[in-house]
Design a protein around this nucleic acid. Structure first.
Lengths: 221, 221
DNA sequence: TCCACAATTCAACGACAACTCAATTAAAAC
DNA sequence: GTTTTAATTGAGTTGTCGTTGAATTGTGGA
């Protein structure tokens, strides 16, 4: 969970004059507000989803007027897009998973790489934002859908040289998305508390089977 | 998807006097509004999640004044709770899955029963409501969490007589939740379009392994 | 030095949020 | 038939939403 001081702590440029009022006009020195806004947005979107996070609350967290958000990002949509921009580096993920080490450890490397995204401070917030928002915000759902299908799983499945790479890819996606939902969002039972290595050990065989194992009758019969 | 005339169609009791206005006071005959509200609420919550669905929009869909919702359900929270109430009948699910037919087909029966919930008109809306809202609304997340862990998966895992039933249960939950997310919410790739039987054939072995197979080293070594 | 521009806040807009209260009409209980 | 209770809307409260335009203050280039 985030520390009690929250996402503020970067925007302490503006000294306030009595009554919470801040001096208008540009501040001296380098500008930090844009970055502060992005960080606050990631936290809010990660905790409350797209609809539940308000521009004003984000601005407040960032220690900034709400209008500044529109100055930088034009709209709430724009802020959301920017806040999850480059959360997902497909090349990096694909590289980490394939890594030239042959096909046998693919399942394990896939879970491990995926879980790592959920442990890093910044990437975890972005992942939470995407998943939480994807459940009810179409733009987020589209981002998630296209990223998963086009940029990570299809390449992975294709390089394994098996049949029906798209089916294999979506099956693997279902297990990974479900893992994220149950471990990090809904926080179900032992899955939410098990050490990372145990989770990897349990789930990796499933992914390995989806990616390189035999598919049931309707497919390869 | 829902028909264009939407969730109305039941509340046609109130004839309107000119200008969209409706006569005040109680309507003659039996009262259908409560039911109409619940149906409209299920649709709205299913499509937009808790935060994205407004009481006014639901009232509008139901052809009813917004105040009537508060009269019946006291608050939006109350409406939400009522709208997903008895969506999940644990006994029925457990019965359908265990069904006295021994342990070998448990995985398959579990997926099949789960998918059936997502195909029925009413239950699908309730499932969508719960999952969409659970992603960002704590009350929904709690409902989902407790239902999954306490009322379905633990009993199922316990009756299989294997070690670590809670770990097995949460692993199975992760696959099922992920399946619902990818097939019905985010609609990823082939999973969203595959016929039900194919999905069952692909996923059942995973559940069977989680529930009755060998767990990896950290658990049974 | 002057000028274009970027950063920043204030004040407000119109829309809509959840919710309340009183009035009106019908059903149910007596 | 009278009284109580339930259903229903209208009008309104209070608050928040995303967004805008003008005003102010700093930065950087000519």
């Amino acid at each position: 969970m985030s520390a009690p001081h929250g996402a503020e702590g970067s925007g302490e440029v503006a000294e306030d004059l009595g009554g919470g009022r801040k001096r208008t006009g540009r501040r001296p020195g380098v500008t930090l507000s844009r970055h502060a806004i992005l960080q606050a947005a990631r936290s809010r979107f990660a905790e409350h989803g797209y609809a539940g996070a308000s521009v004003r609350a984000i601005a407040n967290d960032a220690g900034v007027d709400a209008a500044l958000i529109h100055h930088f990002f034009l709209s709430k949509e724009g802020l959301f897009a920017a806040s999850i921009h480059d959360a997902l580096h497909p090349e990096a993920v694909v590289e980490a998973v394939l890594g030239g080490k042959g096909v046998r450890g693919t399942g394990e490397r896939l879970v491990r790489t995926f879980l790592a995204l959920w442990e890093g401070e910044t990437t975890a917030r972005q992942m939470r934002s995407i998943l939480r928002s994807a459940a009810s915000h179409e733009a987020a759902a589209r981002i998630l859908r296209e990223f998963i299908t086009q940029e990570v799983l299809v390449p992975i499945a294709r390089t394994t040289g098996r049949t029906h790479p798209d089916v294999r890819a979506s099956l693997a996606a279902s297990q990974l998305v479900g893992l994220a939902m149950t471990r990090y969002i809904v926080e179900i039972g032992p899955l939410a508390t098990l050490p990372q290595d145990d989770v990897v050990a349990c789930v990796a065989p499933t992914l390995q089977r989806y990616l390189t194992g035999a598919l049931p009758a309707p497919f390869d019969a």
